[in-house]
Write a protein that binds this DNA or RNA. Structure first.
Lengths: 115, 115
DNA sequence: ACCTATTTGTCCGTATGTATG
DNA sequence: CCATACATACGGACAAATAGG
C-alpha cells in the first residue's frame, strides 16, 4: 500500500492520510481483515508525525473502516471495502451538492423526499 | 537569517518584513525546502507583533515564495529563489518606471510590444 | 506460569499558523 | 497593528498486548 501526500494541498495532513487510506480500501488494495503497517512506519514513509497518522486512522475507525487493537495494530474491518466505497461516493455527492449551493441540510431533505 | 527593520522607513512594517525575507531568499540565504524560524521568534527579534510578521509572510506565500503549514511552520517553496529574484527585479522596474512617469498600464503595454 | 523486552496505540503537553475582535 | 482564542501538527511519556525465553 503506497500512499502519498500533497504538500501543496491545503487540506489538513490527517485528512489527507484518511482520504488516501479510505481510497486504498475502497479500491480493494487492502482487503478486510488485512493488517495495516504500524502508524509509526506510515508516518516515517509519509514524512509526518505518527500522531498525525493516528488521527487520520482514528477518523476511519469512527467511520467503521478500521479496527484498533493496542499492541496488535490496525486492521481493515469486515465489509470495510464496501462501506468505504459508499462513504467515498457520499463525499463526492456532498461536494457536488455544495458546488451547486446546497448544504447538507438540503441534501438530507432531498434524500428524505426520495420516493 | 538576520533581518532588520528601519524605523525611519515609512513603508508599512509588514511590507518591510516581506521585503527583507524576499531579499534573503533571492540571495540564497534560505534554500528551497528550508524552514523559516517561527513567526513568533522573528517577531520578537524584530520587536513587532507576530501577526505583522505573518502578514508579510502571507504576501510572500501569495507570490509563491513560501509555503505555510499550520502546526508545522513556514518553508521556502521549490524554485522560490529564482522566482523571488525575478519578483525583486520586477519591483525595481516598476519603481523606476514610476519615477519616469510611467504607470503599470504603460509598462505592461511596453512589455506587450516587445518583439 | 513467570518474567521482560518489544511492539503498538493512547494521552498530554508544546509549537505554530489561522481567525476574530 | 496588537491581543487573544483556536485548530493543526509534533514530541515524548505511558500502558496494554504480544512474543520469546
Amino acid at each position: 500500500m503506497l500512499l502519498r501526500l500533497n504538500i501543496s494541498d491545503s487540506r489538513p495532513l490527517h485528512e489527507q492520510v484518511a482520504g488516501a487510506i479510505r481510497r486504498a480500501v475502497a479500491e480493494g488494495e487492502c482487503a478486510p481483515g488485512e493488517r495495516l503497517p504500524p502508524a509509526r512506519d506510515l508516518a516515517q514513509a509519509l514524512g509526518v508525525n505518527a500522531n498525525t497518522v493516528l488521527r487520520g486512522l482514528r477518523s476511519l475507525r469512527d467511520e467503521g473502516v478500521l479496527e484498533f487493537r493496542r499492541g496488535r495494530g490496525v486492521t481493515v474491518a469486515a465489509g470495510a471495502d464496501q462501506r468505504s466505497a459508499l462513504v467515498e461516493r457520499i463525499r463526492e455527492l456532498v461536494q457536488e451538492a455544495a458546488r451547486l449551493g446546497y448544504g447538507k441540510a438540503e441534501l438530507t431533505q432531498m434524500i428524505r423526499e426520495v420516493p
